[in-house]
Nucleic acid binder design. Structure first.
Length: 272
DNA sequence: AATCGTTCCTGATAGC
DNA sequence: TGCTATCAGGAACGAT
């Protein structure tokens, strides 16, 4: 599932390739992924629009455009579980295709069609963006801020890390990996973490996200980067999807439980 | 505020 | 072997 490192990789791949390009055609084969406005309007607004840049906020991709009418527009893409945004030759499996002025095609692929595409005047007004928590890798977000926020919460730490209004961009894989690296049990209440545990978790969230970005993401199921290639962080998983396999640290079998409705992998021996 | 269930969706797979 | 029920989960939403 695309989380911050995967979405960041896509953003970095696509940005230099779409800058200044004009959208010459939009084809839609699965209209339900287009959430706003209607499909006709969606196509009309994007036709002959010019791409300025693409950026990321949390797990959301945002393409900044100048419309044919000279207005500022934003195409937002949330990949959810199986979404892919890939530039290259036309892809017959795509749900939505954006044909570009240089002959390349930006394809939105999505096996399960849970993703969401929008064209909006102001991306900051989207529900998913309003109230979104801090970017874990931004310089303005400090270990002290993180510790203070944890202190005020009585909810379990692992579901809290998945809460996008608490911190942006972390999903099921990196929450599990960061907690293992920090030796913190996923069911611990956030406000029971000591200062040193909070600080350790903060640092490890950053290091795991940075390392995953270096690896161009985790292709656990069907994630692909902006050029259609797999990421390699999957081979660095310590707990995620490793139920029954020996812990890399103590050899105890990795366990799986459900927390907040999500599969949660952990080592009962190492994580306290 | 925290927690739970429901919805969306389709391919992989566990279990009979 | 072959079928079917279950599972995977990001996020919004409503109920408790």
């Amino acid at each position: 599932m695309p989380e911050l490192p995967e979405v960041e990789t896509i953003k970095r791949d696509l940005d230099p390739l779409i800058r200044g390009k004009t959208i010459t055609a939009v084809t839609v084969s699965r209209s339900t992924v287009i959430k706003e406005p209607g499909v006709r309007q969606f196509k009309r607004l994007l036709l002959n629009a010019r791409c300025r840049r693409i950026f990321r906020r949390g797990k959301l991709l945002v393409v900044e455009l100048d419309s044919a009418a000279g207005r500022e527009l934003f195409l937002t893409v949330h990949l959810k579980m199986t979404g892919q945004l890939v530039i290259g030759p036309a892809d017959p499996k795509s749900r939505v295709s954006f044909h570009l002025s240089d002959g390349m095609v930006l394809s939105y692929n999505d096996q399960r069609a849970l993703g969401e595409l929008r064209v909006v005047k102001d991306w900051r007004l989207l529900n998913v963006v309003r109230g979104m928590g801090p970017e874990p890798l931004s310089a303005g977000f400090t270990a002290e801020m993180f510790a203070r926020e944890l202190h005020g919460r009585s909810t379990k730490i692992k579901p809290l890390l998945l809460d996008q209004t608490f911190i942006a961009g972390i999903g099921n894989i990196y929450a599990a990996e960061a907690l293992f690296l920090s030796k913190i049990a996923p069911q611990r209440k956030a406000n029971t973490l000591s200062q040193s545990e909070s600080k350790r978790l903060f640092k490890n969230i950053r290091s795991i996200l940075e390392k995953a970005i270096q690896c161009r993401g985790s292709s656990f199921n069907n994630y692909r980067d902006g050029l259609g290639k797999k990421g390699t962080f999957t081979r660095h998983f310590t707990v995620y999807s490793r139920k029954g396999e020996p812990c890399v640290c103590c050899k105890e079998p990795i366990r799986k439980m459900t927390l907040g409705g999500r599969g949660t992998y952990f080592c009962a021996q190492c994580q306290k």
